[in-house]
Design a protein around this nucleic acid. Structure first.
Lengths: 177, 177
DNA sequence: CGGGCAAAGTTATAGTGGATAACCAATTGG
DNA sequence: CCAATTGGTTATCCACTATAACTTTGCCCG
């Protein structure tokens, strides 16, 4: 996350629009002494990519702390969910929808396999491929993880201002993707 | 670049709400042959963090391609903008508002300094600190970069559906941060 | 049918970003 | 004046991603 990352791009030539109209430096706060004047961040905070990055980092951060005990990272979780909903698929298929290079996906699945959550069953239809399945333990574990996640998700929705706001957000994010 | 990454957290116990109600496997498409059935991704795509991540990667990707010729990465750009709007600040201050560890900020600024865009002037008020400024070349470079970025930003706003949608997005992102 | 090409999985490797620890010089507060 | 803190720096380490190369297997097509 922090993701990230790489900070975001920025806005236009002169001043960003969320920059408070910048006429002249507002008179310094009460004691014009050396009071740590705040920085002008308007030009960066007006950037869509920048804000997107910060929000994403923040949400992932939260995910990491919530799932710390379960030793689950976001990528792990998404893999488990995807396998659960699409049992028997091959590695390449799961990797692709997640946007993970199949070479890197190997390590990911191996980790889950070693923890006894996932099984890689050699497909006899195609001897090159591995069909991915959750083990019984994996199912149980995921059920718990899903519950934990749902709590977090509801918390996020509440912060957004409700279900409608969530839909709006997802729609806007889609337009950027 | 792959999106994924670390995918996001997910939804609740049974099925995500954007998952089409999952009753039973809908009859396979026309030719029930081996037609690469699409994966069920509802449970992942309903996750706020996941969508946030995908959108952020997408936007950054675009930034990278647009700024490829200028050899500017998002972090570089944000640093230049911040220094331009807050000349004379010390490294620690700029680093902090960007959420960059001061140790890692060193490399960042050094790169910009070597390119002749930024100057680190030893402060005589505090002999430990470096006051950051843009060079004349840095100002000129940034003016160009800002113009390039503004074009990209407008393109993003258009995709969102206008200025109002942009404000809505930024507001929602703020609530998550 | 047989040869060539593509796909699935894997390994190895490199690059990048962020985090931590340790250190020096300088400053600040008692 | 001394202790604690701050600013900058270096050196490392870890996580994530990308690329290349290789093996096995499947598929197409002349």
């Amino acid at each position: 996350m922090a993701p990230v990352l790489e900070a975001g791009p920025v806005r236009v030539s002169n001043t960003g629009m969320n920059v408070p109209m910048r006429r002249e430096p507002p008179p310094p706060p009460s004691p014009s002494r050396e009071i740590e004047a705040a920085l002008r961040t308007g030009a960066t905070t007006g950037i869509i990519g920048y804000r997107l990055r910060r929000a994403q980092l923040s949400v992932f951060q939260k995910f990491l702390s919530v799932f710390d005990e379960l030793k689950l990272r976001p990528a792990d979780y998404s893999v488990l969910v995807l396998i659960a909903d699409n049992p028997g698929r091959k590695q390449t298929e799961i990797a692709e929808v997640l946007g993970v290079k199949r070479a890197n996906f190997v390590t990911l699945v191996h980790g889950l396999e070693e923890r006894g959550l996932v099984e890689r069953i050699p497909s006899h239809a195609d001897k090159r491929a591995n069909a991915l399945h959750l083990t019984a333990a994996g199912e149980a574990f995921l059920a718990h993880a899903r519950a934990v996640h749902e709590t977090m998700e509801q918390e996020l929705i509440a912060r957004l201002g409700g279900e409608k706001a969530r839909k709006t957000l997802l729609d806007l994010l889609d337009r950027l993707t």
